[in-house]
């Protein structure tokens, strides 16, 4: 019956959105989380010296 949206979820690293649907009794009927950021580390690490991989990935 109600749709509750928390966006952004705070005190976490990164971007997260939580959407919750409840019915009239307050029971949750549906819930969804959305990760709101894409950077594409696999694409960035492509064609690099493999020793660079941990150096770049540590910035995830």
């Amino acid at each position: 019956m109600a749709t509750i949206t928390i966006d952004p979820v705070n005190r976490i690293e990164g971007h997260l959105k939580v959407v919750v649907q409840t019915d009239t009794a307050g029971i949750i009927t549906d819930a969804a989380c959305t990760g709101n950021l894409f950077r594409g580390f696999e694409l960035i690490m492509n064609r690099r010296d493999p020793r660079d991989a941990p150096v770049i990935t540590q910035r995830i």
């Binding site: 109600a2 749709t3 509750i4 949206t5 928390i6 966006d7 952004p8 979820v9 705070n10 005190r11 976490i12 690293e13």
Partner: peptide, 17 residues
């Protein structure tokens, strides 16, 4: 600063709660 602030805001049915 969403990483450090104490609570998150919330919206209910499209309006700010």
């Amino acid at each position: 600063l969403d990483t450090l602030m104490s609570t998150a805001g919330a919206y209910v049915d499209g309006s700010v709660y």
